[in-house]
Amino acid sequence: MKIKICGIRSQDDLKVCEEEGADLIGFINIERSKRMVEIGEINTLISSMKDVTKAVLVIEPLDITDAEEKIIKSRITNIQLHSLSPEEISELKEKFHRKSAENKTQTSPNLTITRAVGISKVINRDKRREIENFADICDFLLFDYEIQGKTGGTGRQIPAETAIKAAKIAKHRNKDVKLTLAGGMNTARIKNEGKKLERVFDVFDINSGVEIKPGVKNINKISELMEIKQNN
């Protein structure tokens, strides 16, 4: 079981996440989010990280150019996208691949792309096709509860059987794609359903489930979460 703690906004919370053993740490640069952090602030936060490869930049870019600018400015190459089509993601990856080939003597960008896919209670034909199309091109898919076409920050959970069905669709399409489950994740759900869910999911993404209020983490909840992880 791998744990990603998302919505980090302070050095104190970042330090706790690192010390407690979070596998991934997310920084949200989306204006509609209550946990929005400017790119400059993200730069300051990650400068103190012991392992910057754990950092994940969460963005909802307007287009490829916007995404590219945010990636370059943040210097983070684990990217979680809440927008862009499969075709745009393919183009974005190709751009960075070309840069990598052109800059052999420099530190070359090696993007890991996670695409958030919104799920509610039912997976219809269009949603199945969306999952399959993103599974074709992305390194990770992240399933989060969807409300009115928006994912992230809802605090609602995808029913376990629906989440497992989405995971199986993605894996049937691309056995190498990694899968993350988000949406109201907390210690109670991981205690009760963790063993069943981790059969198909590689990462659990927790945000509000370890908070005092939006953007302020609860140390005790993080410790409890990591204890569950260690005992699984």
Rank of each mutant, 00 (worst) to 15 (best):
I71P: 02
D13P: 06
I76N: 15
N29F: 00
E41A: 14
I113W: 08
K73Y: 12
I3V: 14
K93G: 00
N78M: 05
I25E: 12
S10K: 09
S208L: 08
K34F: 04
A101Y: 09
R125G: 01
T180R: 07
S74I: 14
K34G: 02
E38P: 12
Q148M: 08
I222W: 08
K99S: 09
G153I: 03
A22S: 13
K195A: 01
G184D: 01
F134C: 09
I25A: 07
L62N: 13
I76K: 13
D12Y: 08
F143E: 04
I212Y: 12
R129M: 11
E38Y: 15
R9H: 03
L142W: 07
M226G: 04
I113D: 03
G184K: 07
V177T: 02
I30R: 09
M185A: 06
S33P: 09
G215Q: 02
T53K: 08
R35Y: 00
I25H: 09
R173E: 13
D139S: 05
R125A: 11
R129I: 06
S48L: 14
R115Y: 03
A160F: 02
I119A: 05
I190N: 11
S120T: 14
L14F: 04
N232H: 14
S10T: 15
S83V: 06
N174Y: 08
N133C: 09
S85M: 01
I222E: 09
I123Y: 05
E91Q: 14
E94S: 05
L57W: 06
I228W: 03
R9L: 13
H172D: 15
T151K: 01
K95D: 11
N192L: 03
E227M: 11
L92A: 04
I39W: 14
A167G: 15
R156C: 02
T180M: 13
R75D: 07
C6H: 01
R173K: 15
I119V: 14
K191A: 10
L225K: 09
K70Q: 15
I158R: 05
M36E: 07
F140D: 02
I39R: 10
R128Q: 13
G183P: 00
A163D: 06
L84S: 04
I222D: 11
D66Y: 05
K229E: 03
L57E: 14
T154W: 04
G40R: 13
K99H: 10
I39C: 14
P159R: 12
T187S: 10
S100R: 15
M49E: 11
M185E: 03
R125Q: 12
L179P: 08
I72W: 11
D13I: 04
G7C: 07
F140C: 01
E87Y: 06
K70G: 04
V16I: 15
R9T: 14
D139H: 14
A55L: 03
T77K: 04
N29D: 02
K93P: 02
L225G: 09
I147N: 03
R35C: 00
I228T: 07
N174R: 12
R9S: 04
I131G: 05
K150T: 07
I72D: 11
L57M: 07
L57C: 11
Q106D: 12
A166N: 13
Y145T: 05
F201H: 08
K99M: 15
G152S: 00
S48H: 15
I212K: 15
E38R: 15
M226L: 14
